[in-house]
C-alpha cells in the first residue's frame, strides 16, 4: 500500500433515541489505500453504513461521533479544524452512492440537472461545460442514449439506469475514493452483475479506491482486495479477500460464509446463524457474538480486542485456523439447518 487515503481510528458513533443511547459504532478502525477496494461486510444494523456516513461527514442529530478520529490523507476531518476540510472534499475527493437510486435521486429534477449542479458548484463550470461533462460521464457509465437521458426524470428511467446515473454523479468531480453503500441490493441479479462490472472497470480506468458496503459475499469475492467484517458495531475480522474466503478465522465470518449458497455444489446445505444480532442499546460485555457463537467458552464474556494473527486481524479468543469447511461444520452441525 503506497498511500493511505482514508483512515478511521477507533471511531465511536452514538445515536440518542427515546429508548436510550444506541451505540451504533463501537471503536471501528480501518483504512483504505490508493486504488484499493475494501469490502465492509455485515448484517443490517452492524454499523457499516453509519461508519461510512461518518467518513463522509453525514452523521447528524440524533447521531453523534463521540470518539475516535477520521483522517483524509493524514488530516483529521473531525473537530473545528476538520470541518472545513470535510466540506471541501465531500463530493469532490470522496463521493458516495447509495442503495436505492430511486429514492436517492431527487424525483423533481432531471438526472442532467442533478449532475450538472455538482459540476457547477465544485468545478465552477458554466452551463454548457457542465452539460458536456455530464454527457461524457453518462457515456462513461454506459448509459444508452445519454443525451436523451440527461433530460429525463428519475421516474422515467429503469433501476439499473438510475444507479448508473448515481455513479456518474458521484464520479463527476473525479473523486479518489468512492463509498458504495449496497449499490446493488435494490437491483435484480443481471443488473447487479452489470453494475459491479462497471464499478470494477471504472476502478481500473480511474485508479479509484472503493469502499464496498454489502451483506453479499458474492459481491465481495468479485470486487474486493481486502474485507472487514462488522458485527454489532465492531470489526470482528479483517483480512485479504482470498483469506477470508479460504481461511475465515472468526466464527461469525464462518457463519456468514456457511449461510451463503455456493454454486459449485461442494457444500450441502445452507446454515443460518441462530439467534439475533445484539441490542445496541445495551452496553456490551465481552464478545458481541458470544451468545450466537457455536464455539463459545466461558472466557468469551471478557472483552476481546482486534488482534493481529498471521496476516489478518481477528477479534476472537478462539479463532479457527485451517481451511474452513470441515472444522466449522463439525462444531456447528448441531445448529438447525434449513
Amino acid at each position: 500500500m503506497t498511500q493511505k487515503l482514508l483512515e478511521i481510528d477507533n471511531l465511536e458513533v452514538h445515536f440518542t433515541t427515546r429508548r436510550g443511547v444506541v451505540r451504533a459504532v463501537r471503536g471501528v478502525s480501518l483504512s483504505v489505500g490508493k486504488g484499493e477496494t475494501l469490502g465492509l461486510v455485515g448484517e443490517s444494523g452492524s454499523g457499516k453504513s453509519v461508519t461510512s456516513q461518518a467518513a463522509m461527514g453525514l452523521v447528524h442529530i440524533p447521531g453523534e461521533i463521540v470518539g475516535g478520529d477520521i483522517r483524509w490523507k493524514g488530516q483529521s476531518l473531525l473537530g473545528p479544524e476538520g470541518h472545513p476540510l470535510s466540506r471541501r472534499i465531500r463530493g469532490r475527493e470522496m463521493a458516495m452512492i447509495f442503495q436505492d437510486a430511486m429514492t436517492s435521486l431527487n424525483p423533481l429534477f432531471t438526472c442532467g440537472q442533478q449532475i450538472t449542479e455538482v459540476l457547477r458548484y465544485h468545478r465552477k463550470m458554466n452551463k454548457a461545460q457542465a452539460q458536456a461533462r455530464a454527457l461524457e460521464l453518462f457515456e462513461l457509465v454506459g448509459i444508452s442514449a445519454p443525451l436523451e437521458r440527461l433530460n429525463q426524470y428519475p421516474f422515467e428511467m429503469s433501476g439499473g439506469m438510475r444507479q448508473r446515473g448515481m455513479i456518474a454523479m458521484a464520479l463527476a468531480c473525479e473523486p479518489e475514493l468512492l463509498i458504495a453503500d449496497e449499490p446493488t441490493t435494490a437491483l435484480d441479479v443481471t443488473i447487479q452483475a452489470q453494475i459491479l462490472e462497471l464499478l470494477q472497470d471504472l476502478q481500473k480506468r480511474l485508479d479509484l479506491s472503493i469502499i464496498m458496503i454489502t451483506h453479499d459475499l458474492g459481491v465481495v469475492a468479485g470486487l474486493c482486495d481486502r474485507v472487514a467484517v462488522m458485527y454489532g458495531g465492531q470489526i470482528v475480522e479483517e483480512a485479504s479477500a482470498d483469506e477470508i474466503f479460504s481461511h475465515p478465522a472468526h466464527p461469525y465470518t464462518m457463519g456468514l460464509l456457511r449461510s451463503t449458497p455456493r454454486i459449485d455444489g461442494k457444500d450441502d446445505r445452507m446454515v443460518s446463524i441462530a439467534g439475533s444480532p445484539p441490542d445496541l442499546l445495551q452496553a456490551q460485555q465481552g464478545c458481541a457474538f458470544a451468545s450466537r457463537c457455536p464455539s463459545r467458552k466461558a472466557e468469551c464474556s471478557r472483552d476481546v480486542q482486534l488482534k493481529e494473527m498471521a496476516s489478518r486481524q481477528v477479534a476472537c479468543r478462539f479463532p479457527f485456523s485451517g481451511p474452513w469447511s470441515r472444522d466449522f461444520k463439525e462444531r456447528t452441525d448441531h445448529i438447525g439447518t434449513r
Partner: peptide, 17 residues
C-alpha cells in the same frame, strides 16, 4: 429525512441549496 437529501449532502451541496 429523505434519502435524496443525503445524496445532495454527499455531493457536497451547500445547506442553503
Amino acid at each position: 429525512n429523505a434519502q435524496y437529501v443525503k445524496t445532495a449532502e454527499a455531493k457536497g451541496m451547500p445547506l442553503f441549496r
